[in-house]
């Protein structure tokens, strides 16, 4: 469970950075970039909060 959440969290970070590189190389529009980064943010923080809540149980 924790490993899966960690991977999803990393995907959130990927969605935060990679769209800017795609925008740099004209692969996506600025609107898509903003949307992807917003999704990345939601994913990263959601997973972090869930992991934080699960942590005492796994301890």
């Amino acid at each position: 469970m924790n490993t899966m959440l960690r991977i999803i969290g990393w995907l959130g970070l990927v969605l935060t950075l990679v769209p800017s590189l795609l925008f740099l190389f004209d692969a996506i529009s600025i609107e898509s970039l903003k949307l992807a980064m917003t999704i990345g943010m939601v994913v990263w923080f959601s997973v972090a909060i869930i992991r934080n809540r699960l942590e005492p149980a796994t301890d």
Binding site: G12, L13, L24, M37, F45, N52
Partner: peptide
């Protein structure tokens, strides 16, 4: 602590997009 790696990447993304 949670926000820290995300913030660093947002700073970098801001720089890349602004450069473009």
């Amino acid at each position: 602590n949670i926000a820290s790696p995300w913030m660093v990447l947002v700073f970098l993304a801001c720089g890349i997009v602004a450069f473009k």
